[in-house]
Design a protein around this nucleic acid. Structure first.
Lengths: 281, 281
DNA sequence: TCGTTGTGTCCGATATACTGGACAGCAATC
DNA sequence: GATTGCTGTCCAGTATATCGGACACAACGA
């Protein structure tokens, strides 16, 4: 099936680097992504530059999205995500109770231990922090929620990749992913080995990877097929005593296990509860 | 300025009721709205019917959105909102701390009083429940978060409309908005009068409106211009004693006041704080 | 006063995105 | 094994969405 020869014009443009005509829908996707990267309201002029789109098109698209409530206009006429997108996000949460429970657990662990805690998943094969709660320590926030981070930089990434085969892992890695923030470069085989080790041990600890002053401890959250669908992790200072690290690790593993779906156990399927919600009215 | 004569084809189509060609971007907007209304993952075939879009277009659009992470495909190949939309929703929350604080306050009030509590705002002139926390009583949930409800049905709606002039209010009302769920029809003037009264009193209580067995108590949340930007409200059983209602009302008014921006007080403008966020790195 | 910069609208031309319909595969039902 | 219904892909034609560029306006500073 040779279906991937000429992708929807956008791909072609990206490959050629030329500024040709683009689909409105692609523009929308890029525009939203740009807003997310930027992280704050943007003037439309600036937005044109961010997405490299012509002004007339951008104005038109923004108007449409604002009308739909997907974007909102600030008093100074800059735009950002709107309430409608927030509602859609809540819909996502409602449908995925693993994420909801993960968020609650992260909040609880951060509160009870005082450490920075995160809930992580793969988004289209890429490691992302889904939820984070800062600890009591005034920490340098390494990353915002929802931004992609190369999996090799993190303990969670190793666990999340552990379901894939060696070749799949290699395919998932993007250029530069193995270049650590601290400057040194990780070998592919070395990374794959650490992924395998994480799988074996049922947890993962990295030290000084994303920055030199932190450990990263992570435990897997598994679905009914024993696949790693998410992780829960702590980010702690490098000088944390070994005993406390072991203790935190055990806490994480326990939480990860609690969040995991207990295997079907051959009993009644009853996989999804909450299904008869709207039955009342 | 006669700029609203021929809207982007979608409008025209809607007016004509004819199934002509449609912009991809409009299809996206409609598709997302349909998913939200539906509230659960949908098979693509069903989705085509929901948005009345041709199958080929729908497949193409869904594929694009899935690739972008805005939608996700369930194992049974139905689609629903994806993690990316969730991230965008979190971005919205981060940028609007009023909403964040409102959510927290709603959770607190619901926990402390045991009553069902809501945080409401206008979305493009339409009343919407932004956040809700059910009380201890097993209540019939009147509405899902993020769905539009006619303002005249609610106490919050009256407060949220109280900044508008009489004509503006009439313009905002859509046909059927004045037809109460209990069957009786409210007069426009009657509604406007109740809006004015709500403004005067600084709170609003309706009884048996959205359904015959509840009171609705609401208090305004105001911005620095004294405009009502949101409301916080309780939904309580009709047989709640008057004394407790008064007490709950006072609680709400206090919460509403706490959530409101205290007026600029003629001192240094400093209208928007949190603007120098990214100054640190 | 005059240039500069940024915002927002409008319009004609054309590259192309959207559509309808055909087609194939699969599963369940008759 | 024929029928029905659903999923998913592919393709050519044409209605039209996108783009570039012009225009008006306001704010600002030299």
């Amino acid at each position: 099936m040779l279906k991937s020869q000429e992708r929807t014009n956008g791909q072609r443009r990206a490959a050629a680097g030329q500024g040709t005509r683009e689909r409105g829908i692609d523009r929308v996707v890029q525009l939203l992504a740009a807003l997310h990267r930027h992280g704050r309201p943007v003037r439309i002029g600036e937005l044109c530059a961010l997405v490299e789109a012509p002004r007339s098109s951008t104005y038109e698209i923004v108007r449409t999205l604002v009308d739909a409530g997907l974007l909102e206009t600030s008093p100074d006429s800059s735009v950002f995500f709107g309430k409608t997108l927030y509602f859609y996000g809540m819909d996502y949460l409602r449908e995925h109770d693993l994420v909801s429970r993960g968020r609650d657990e992260v909040d609880r662990l951060a509160r009870e231990t005082g450490e920075t805690c995160q809930f992580c998943m793969l988004t289209r094969g890429q490691y992302t922090v889904v939820h984070m709660r800062a600890g009591v320590r005034p920490f340098r926030i390494s990353s915002e929620v929802g931004t992609r981070i190369p999996a090799p930089w993190t303990a969670s990434g190793r666990l999340l990749y552990s379901d894939f085969g060696d070749d799949e892992i290699r395919a998932l890695l993007k250029p530069g992913d193995l270049d650590m923030p601290n400057g040194q470069r990780l070998g592919v085989d070395e990374f794959v080995a650490s992924v395998r080790q994480a799988r074996e041990e049922g947890f993962c600890i990295t030290s000084g990877l994303v920055d030199a002053y932190t450990h990263c401890l992570a435990a897997p959250i598994r679905d009914h097929n024993h696949g790693t669908v998410a992780t829960i992790c702590f980010v702690v200072p490098i000088d944390t005593p070994a005993q406390r690290i072991a203790q935190l690790r055990d806490t994480l593993v326990a939480s990860g296990h609690a969040l995991s779906v207990n295997p079907p156990s051959s009993a009644t399927p009853a996989r999804k509860t909450a299904r008869a919600d709207r039955a009342d009215n």
